[in-house]
């Protein structure tokens, strides 16, 4: 079974479309949207409606902290994120809020758990930035594979029972092996706002038969997204960071 996992789209239409183009060619058996459809980017309506269409067609979709903030009007975020959420809320309609509000925090499918931030206290939106956080996330679930996003930086943690997980930074477009012996925590890179120094959009392609996961990189027209951010009055840094991938 092949599964495409898209995280942190962040209302970036150009990145989302470019990634969906590649996903269509790959023709996976399952599509998963791992949260944070909105926030930061200039096209929240487009992305939410597209996501709703995909869910209609059988895709899984879970909630991210920005989706929750947009739906509930939460403001306990960094300055840029808060400004962007307020901007987003002015543009979304009732049906968009409803769609975001009904998204589940996590979703279990066979031996795979999908959760936006961490399996540990899911509603707290914790970041998995080190082995300790990964270990706590892994111990909060018994799934063999946990897929998270949220950090915008790809990582894989390999866990053998009774031992500390091993961190690995997967290479772009190179399949990373998944072990029969171990449990895995895969942190998927971001579609709409990469922060690992590579501005190309990132999504994960899982192949359960080959026991491999690949961080696929897709170049897209980030100049156009940045231009829209500038034109719409969103904070300028949100466009700048797309160009440098930070």
């Amino acid at each position: 079974m092949r599964i495409a996992i898209l995280s942190d789209i962040h209302a970036n239409r150009e990145a989302f479309d470019a990634v969906l183009g590649v996903v269509r060619k790959q023709a996976p058996d399952q599509l998963v949207l791992l949260g944070d459809l909105v926030g930061y980017g200039p096209d929240p309506v487009y992305v939410v409606e597209k996501a709703a269409d995909l869910v209609e067609g059988g895709a899984f979709c879970i909630k991210g902290n920005h989706d929750e903030a947009a739906a509930l009007g939460r403001t306990d975020m960094t300055e840029n994120a808060r400004v962007a959420i307020e901007w987003t809320r002015e543009r979304l309609a009732r049906e968009h809020f409803d769609f975001l509000a009904q998204l589940p925090l996590s979703l279990r499918s066979e031996d795979r758990l999908y959760v936006h931030a961490s399996a540990e206290r899911q509603e707290k939106w914790l970041y998995i930035r080190d082995v300790d956080a990964a270990e706590r996330c892994l111990s909060a679930s018994d799934a063999r594979f946990i897929f998270c996003g949220h950090t915008h930086i790809p990582a894989i943690y390999y866990a053998l029972s009774g031992r500390r997980p091993v961190h690995f930074r997967p290479l772009d477009n190179v399949a990373a092996p998944l072990s029969e012996l171990r449990r895995h925590l895969v942190v998927v890179g971001a579609v709409g706002q990469p922060r690992d120094g590579n501005p190309s959009a990132c999504f994960a392609l899982l192949d359960t038969e080959r026991r491999e996961v690949t961080m696929v990189r897709v170049p897209y027209d980030h100049e156009e997204t940045a231009r829209k951010i500038q034109a719409s009055g969103l904070p300028g840094w949100l466009g700048m960071r797309l160009k440098i991938g930070r």
């Binding site: 894989i156 390999y158 053998l160 031992r163 091993v166 961190h167 092996p177």
Partner: peptide, 8 residues
């Protein structure tokens, strides 16, 4: 590839 052996 990850160095699972070395990390252990």
């Amino acid at each position: 590839l990850p160095d699972l052996l070395g990390e252990e």
